[in-house]
Design a protein around this nucleic acid. Sequence first.
RNA 1: GCUGGGGUGGCGGAAUUGGUAGACGCCCAGGACUUAAAAUCCUGUGCCUUUAGGGGCGUACGGGUUCGAUUCCCGUCCCCAGUACCA
Length: 924
Amino acid sequence: MDEKYFAKKIEQKWQQKWAESGAFHAEPDATRPKFYALEMLPYPSGNLHMGHVRNYSAGDALAWYKRLKGFNVLHPIGWDSFGQPAEDAAVKRGVNPREWTEANIIAMRGQLERLGLSYDWRRQMAAHRPEYYKFDQWFFLKMYEMGLAYKKQTQVNWCSNDQATLSNEQASGGICWRCGNPVTKKDLEQWFLKTTAYTDQLLDDMAEIEAGWPASVLKRQSDWMGRSEGAFVDFDVMASGESLFACPIVDGLTSMSDQGKSRVRIFTTRIDTIYGANALVLAAEHPVIQANIDNFSEEVASKIAIIRTENARPADHEVEIEKDGIDTGLKAINPFSGEELPVWVGNYVMMAYGTGAVMSVPAHDERDFEFAKKFGLDIREVVQSASFSLSSADAAQAEDCTLNEAFSDYGVVVNSGEWSGMSSEEAKSAMTAFAEKSRFGQGATTYRLRDWGISRQRFWGSPIPIIYCDTCGVVPEKFENLPVRLPENAPITGTGESPLAKVPEFYETTCPKCDGPAKRETDTMDTFVDSSWYFFRYLDPTNEDVPFDIEKAAYWAPVDQYIGGDDHAVMHLIYARFWSKVMRDMGLVTFDEPVKRLLTQGMVVGETFFDDESGKRVYYPAAEVTVERDVKGRITSATTSVPGAVATGASDNPKSKIQNPKSLRHAIERMSKSKGNGVDPDEMVEIYGADAARIFVMFAAPIENELVWHEAGIEGAVRFLQRVWRLVHRWEPAFRVQASACSSPEQKQPEGCTLNGKRLRQKTHQTIKRVSDSFESLQFNTPVAALMELSNAIGDVEFENADDDTVFAVREALTSLVLMLTPFSPHTSEELYSVLIGNEDGMLANGARFPEFIDEMAKADEIEIPVQINGKLRSRVMAAPETSNETLEKMVFADEKVREYTDGKEVIKVVVVPKRLVNIVIKN
RNA sequence: GCUGGGGUGGCGGAAUUGGUAGACGCCCAGGACUUAAAAUCCUGUGCCUUUAGGGGCGUACGGGUUCGAUUCCCGUCCCCAGUACCA
């Protein structure tokens, strides 16, 4: 018998057994409750990193837990295999993207298998395979039919570093999501999916998933969609004096009044403040401004030009942009008051939001306030509140009141004609109604969310199944012709043009309508299309006719638990929610939301020191560096034990002095090879074993926290597993000799059990409760700690001369421990379970179940009650849990230590918290 | 700036509805075993203080509520994440 724990041996053994028996294959089964456990699928870069290990270890733990709880668990994995790195590899090394991707998938699958993750590999999907992307195209055509896919000429976000188009979500903050480069704009014709048709649903349906999703993710999504309710108001605009004025009619932005006057439309959420408007402020790009650019004075025109170019510049997060603008000389009429207002161009008004035009109300809007202060415009107060009220005399002079800051809360409307005296809320609806009746405005809701631009001038993506015919125009490919396949040998240059446009065999085709010569669309789809619905493909991965069978989806979907990084909170998770709603409207699914519960796990980061030597960063792993600091925390000297990492002066000396300690910086960053702070999961598995690596990753920090990778702790996980291993092998012969002294574990406490046995059984059942509760609340670090405690408790039981009851209690404890460890260390658990149970069929084949918590067993005969005197812990007494408060009080006052404090003192009060503590308040 | 989340030993982190702060692990120190080392096992380990028993102080800081506060309230400081003038 193996007395020693050889991780590698048992891991290989069980991985093979699982694969052979199809242990994790799942099929619909109406007799059992289902559980769909899903983790975000990896990009097949070729290397797994610790972030994956963390993500998948958590998902696997949950999948195992649910299996042992009797659920029919679906736990699949696949590959987000379209995308840029394959093309980069093609450009740099001349490899074929498909071959490169397939090789990486094989390599990474091996890594996942060596971790012993319990996937149903039969369901593996890969985005780049025609049998998958066929249905990207299928969905696209369906959306085209539904009017949800359309083409238009726009300014797209462009990353000059990646030579790639980006959706708004991917260009958030003016920064490329992939490389962090500033994003510029480029004019392109591209295909869009109408995400905006679902904005309200995407916002409102959050109520359905509120309980299961992190609030921060939902908040970020709703911020991103940016719904704001208010009103459009049309201002008559005219030239003043002799100057010319041109007003192009642009739907939604400008119009003509019944009297034939030009109108500019503004959007406001605070129509109640309109009497406080002192100007109309337009974006520099506004069509009225651009149409009149030659009519303005040179000064005005050049200022507008400056603002425009500055607007086009990528955003700098660090610098706050100063308000700037200029009076154009145009005039506008406030339709409520009839007052004439100047028309300004302001750098703080953006063409992309609302109508690109605002009314400036400095008293009640911070930005307008700043603007007015800078240019000396008047500030009129039209809203007051209880906390911010002026006397009526002051109100009369409100016009020259000098505010220090804008008051942007709701209050009571003043100085606003017939609306004065109303609350802001009342005024908003009354004034909106009036504007509608008077035909110069209407209630309106605006959104920040834009339609999803999916065209990419890339090779390694799903071709958009559209054909351009000189006779018939834009013609969708026929469903029966799908998939539109990628050619094998496209010239990939990475210079930003569509590679498919250089492959006549690809783009030359015939029109599905008229059979005349025609050309295919040569752009491919954003890879986020693939990841928007991949988790439905797992449900029916081989279906050739439709993306998935409705019946199968009805059983498995929606996802019960999704786990992944919160960097996808906005992009992927909005797209996936959108896609599900479209599928619902297509009749494929019956629910609104695809994911019931979401867990966002924190990043795994590495700690390094780095030094910018001659412009090139030199990294030192933190574990290899010893630094000394001065009082101010500056590094004064540093040594490293990695001679190779030292740029100069490297020697055989194991500790080398780092040349420029003063320029050395401490950094905690995302792991990467180039920084030398990465860890190879394969290496971890090789050295410590998959189970130890997985336990450590789960135990090291709460799953949602960032995890700074320090290898030091992993030894503890190995030691723990070895301890459990030894315990089982030490006690197992005793279990065989005395197999059923106390019969089944479900049984109640046998008569005459020793105290030893009782205590251990309490600990066992308390642990069962703690561990189960932890899994239900998605905590993975605390159950490991609880299991370590249990194993310590078992270790404390004396083996020599153990009586039958003790042996029984140990057997129950060890069996429970082994079962509860399965989600964290499945190989070791399977092996130890087979030792305990006497066969090697595996837990699932044996119908093993997570141990049941028995409340009665967890109860202690005697508990320790801390005794406080004036809130300070002074003593402890042992008492039965059901001891009455009166008895307990007596016991406490009988305690010697307590009497030392209370003798001769006046007892003011005694607080007894049943089963918890006693606090005696005395007068000193 | 705004929004959200935080601040607990040398480190990662535990602490039910307010009820023994520091579980569990790492690191470190001492000991046992060993010819020796590794492994393993045992002991100690918040800080200060005391010969000892003990005592005092401790959950960013300052107040408050309470018999009792890491937990609740008010104020201040700091860190992290998201966001970028959204009208």
